[in-house]
């Protein structure tokens, strides 16, 4: 298990570093969107003190963190798996002496680690110095936020892996990929703060796994909850991450039995 994780991680880092231009583009795109939502929310709070129970600085910090960390957890494993399947290269992947699920996770974690250093952290620093993103005041927030980020990536990966597996059966992932992007955009908090949803919908959305991707890290970073209560959302994240991982492993077995390798 450890060698699988290590080789996967190293491969992910190497692949991510090979496309440095893309990292720059990702950084620029993400900052344009961050600037847009910062401008919008600044304008919204010019005429009122609170929206949905949040004050200006709190909401703006939430929105910025929730959006900027998508550069970290945003997994393209679903598209990668679908492409490997479409080109028939999945057969080669299955010959390799490692566990496909674990290896893919480690490789995506390597990708995310590079993105963290090249995009997420510079963007957060930039937002902190230019857009008024408030850094946490309590020291404990940092390790809790870091752990929460790791779990948000695990949830993002777990979900992307399931979508990738679905493409083995559907033979086509394009529509599903869009659907995934939409679900994450609407229900994770990355584009729409979850507190904006009217009440019964808000509570339902918080029951979905997607809230663990952006909403939880963002409320932890903005210190909405004291330490003991902050463990609750973190635990929920952990449970979702484990559930999605186990489901991925379980469904992979079934998918491989049904897999038809396309020639090429």
């Amino acid at each position: 298990m450890i060698p699988t994780l290590r080789t996967g991680l190293a491969l992910g880092v190497k692949l991510a570093l090979a496309y440095r231009f893309e990292a720059l583009v990702q950084l620029l795109s993400a900052s344009v969107v961050a600037l847009l939502s910062w401008s919008l929310w600044t304008a919204v709070f010019r005429d009122r003190a609170t929206v949905a129970g949040q004050d200006g600085p709190g909401m703006i910090s939430y929105v910025l963190v929730a959006w900027l960390i998508t550069t970290f957890y945003g997994s393209r494993v679903d598209q990668e798996l679908a492409a490997r399947f479409r080109e028939g290269l999945i057969a080669v992947d299955l010959l390799r002496p490692w566990d496909l699920h674990l290896h893919t996770y480690a490789r995506d974690l390597g990708r995310a680690g590079v993105a963290l250093l090249l995009s997420t952290i510079p963007l957060l620093l930039l937002a902190g110095s230019l857009l008024g993103l408030k850094p946490p005041e309590q020291l404990w927030t940092w390790p809790v936020f870091a752990l929460s980020l790791l779990l948000s990536h695990a949830i993002g990966f777990g979900f992307a892996f399931l979508v990738g597996l679905a493409s083995f059966r559907l033979r086509n992932a394009a529509g599903l990929t869009h659907l995934k992007a939409t679900l994450i955009g609407v229900f994770s908090g990355s584009l729409i703060p979850l507190d904006l949803f009217p009440e019964p919908i808000r509570s339902l959305v918080l029951l979905l796994p997607f809230q663990g991707m952006s909403h939880t890290p963002a409320i932890l970073f903005t210190e909405r909850l004291p330490f003991v209560q902050a463990m609750g959302p973190l635990l929920v994240q952990l449970l979702w991450a484990l559930a999605l991982m186990l489901l991925g492993r379980f469904l992979l077995r079934g998918a491989l039995r049904a897999l038809v390798v396309q020639g090429g």
Binding site: N172, G175, L176, H178, T182, G185, V186, L191
Partner: peptide
Amino acid sequence: DFALHALGDLLVAGI
């Protein structure tokens, strides 16, 4: 594929 693409793009715009 065409229908899925169309639906997907529509969903993203619907956010």
